[in-house]
Each structure stands twice: as C-alpha cells, then as structure tokens.
Computed example of a mutant assay.
Amino acid sequence: MQASLFPDQTLSPGSRIKVGCAGWSLPRALWPGFPAAGTHLQRYAARLNAVEINSSFYRPHQEATYARWAASVPDDFRFSVKLPKTITHQRRLADCTGLLDTFLGQVGGLGGRLGCLLVQLPPSLAFDAATVTSFLRALRERHGGPVALEPRHASWFSAPADALLDAWQVGRVLADPVVHEAGRIPGCFAGLVYVRLHGSPRMYYSAYDRAVLDALIIRLELAARSGANVWCLFDNTAEGAAVADALYTLQGLAVR
C-alpha cells in the first residue's frame, strides 16, 4: 500500500470520530437543546461536529457558498460532500475529469473543513477494474484527502474490488440497512471508517433503538482506537430522527 495521503496519527481517538446528519435541519422539538441565535448551520454545529452535504449530488453550489458555510462553523467541524450524480450516475465514473475539476473547485471553498468526499454509486453499476482505476487515478491526482465509496452492486463486494480501493486509500461505506452480507462491516482502506445509517426498519424514517446505538458506539470507538478516521452519519431525516440519534451517539462517545 502507498503511504497515507492523510496522516494524522497524533490525533486522539475522540478527535478522529465525526458524528452528524445528512443536512443540518433541526426538528422543532429539539430546538431547546440548540442555541437560539444564528443560522441553522451555526446552531447545528454548536452540538454536532460533522455534516454530510447531499444536495451537491443534485445541483452544484458555488465556491463562495461553501466558503460561507466553512466560515460559520467551529474549527473542529468537518463537512463530507457527496459527488454529483453527473459523475456517478450519468457518466458512471467514466470520462469525467472535467466534471471532477469543476466539483473540486467548488468544494475547495471549504478549505480545511472539507473532511471527506462521498462517492455513492447506482445499484446498477458493476465493478470494472479499468474504469475504477482510471477514475480513482484522476481523483487522487486532484484530491489527497479521505474518500468514502458506497457501492451497491454485488460485484463490488469482492477481493479484486477491495484490493483496488485499498490501493487508492478509499474506504468502503457501511450503509444500513445492509443490502449485501459482505457490507456489514466497513471495508477496503483501514484508515477510514464511514458509516451511513438510513433508518431501520423504515428507511429515512425510523429511529434506531438505543441498544443498537450503544453497540454502534463501541464499534466506532474501537475503529478510532485502531487509528482510523471515523465518520458516522445519520440519514433517517424524514421525521427528524437523525438529529436525536446523532446526539445520543456523540454523547455516548464523549467526543465533546
């Protein structure tokens, strides 16, 4: 394996763990637990230390917009940003260097608060070593930070795919609910653990049982103690469960 593109072995386990939601919307019922003043993002960032920007998948944001977001959060807050669907779903990772340049130029507005890039693939996109190699080479020539990839076709959960992603220091996402048995644990590059929780049994709606979150907290702590950078993002946002789940998890981790 090549030398780490993002070494940070001096960090404490707690500082390696980022917990947040997909977006920074706050349910009204939880407003009393957040500052009353400030933008929605500022209030959110007062309690949580990360957020996943999914809107970038659907539409571009200007570099100045990213810069404004970065300027409104604490120093230790980090953003994960999903790659546009033009790259992952329309071009399907092929011949997209121009699109990568445009996207990375935009998210560059986050500066040091850009924590991770999320590459979510369509369920129909099978693993093809040549295409993936070309894409990751282009991406790594432009971006040296953490990259998490969420494949959804069964062919990605294989030794050749694991080896290729590991070689480019790309972590495979653990997405819940799990579709493929091999996806029950994060995979590939051991330096990055990225967990996306969509709600179960009803995706995007269901809150997680506290026993499930307690077990998750232990797994996140163990991953951080092994030296990995750890991300835990809740996407069960449809009825506001994500914020409560994230707060419970962060409190359990005693990160702040």
Rank of each mutant, 00 (worst) to 15 (best):
Q106K: 13
G187R: 13
Q62R: 12
G199I: 00
Y208L: 06
P27Y: 07
P146K: 07
F79A: 02
P146S: 10
C96L: 05
A29K: 12
T133W: 03
P13D: 01
P27D: 12
S25R: 13
A71F: 02
S158I: 06
G191D: 01
S15V: 07
I218Q: 15
D101S: 13
A64F: 08
R184V: 09
Y44P: 06
R43T: 10
D162K: 14
L174C: 12
L233W: 02
L114P: 00
D128R: 15
A161H: 11
E52F: 02
I87E: 09
V19Q: 03
S56P: 15
S55G: 12
S226T: 02
A126C: 05
A126N: 04
E150F: 02
V193P: 00
S56M: 14
V73C: 07
V132M: 03
A148T: 01
A223Y: 02
P60Q: 10
A45R: 07
P123I: 10
F234I: 05
V73A: 04
T249L: 12
R113H: 12
A94E: 13
Q42K: 09
S55F: 08
D176P: 01
G183M: 08
W231Q: 00
D128C: 13
A182N: 07
V255S: 04
S25I: 03
P151L: 10
S206V: 08
L125K: 00
P13Y: 00
S134D: 14
A126L: 03
R59I: 09
P32G: 04
D95N: 15
T102S: 12
A167D: 13
G111A: 11
G144Y: 12
A207V: 07
A64V: 14
L197C: 13
A223T: 01
V193A: 07
S206M: 09
V73W: 00
R47T: 10
I53G: 13
A182L: 09
R172S: 11
W168A: 15
L222F: 04
L192V: 07
T97C: 11
R152E: 10
A148F: 00
R140D: 03
R202A: 15
G252M: 08
A3H: 14
D101G: 06
A241I: 00
L164S: 04
D176V: 08
D235V: 03
G187M: 06
L121Q: 02
A211Q: 07
H89M: 00
Q120N: 03
Y194M: 08
A148R: 00
D76Q: 15
E150T: 00
A238C: 14
N49A: 13
A29R: 13
A71W: 01
P60M: 09
N49M: 13
T131P: 03
A71T: 03
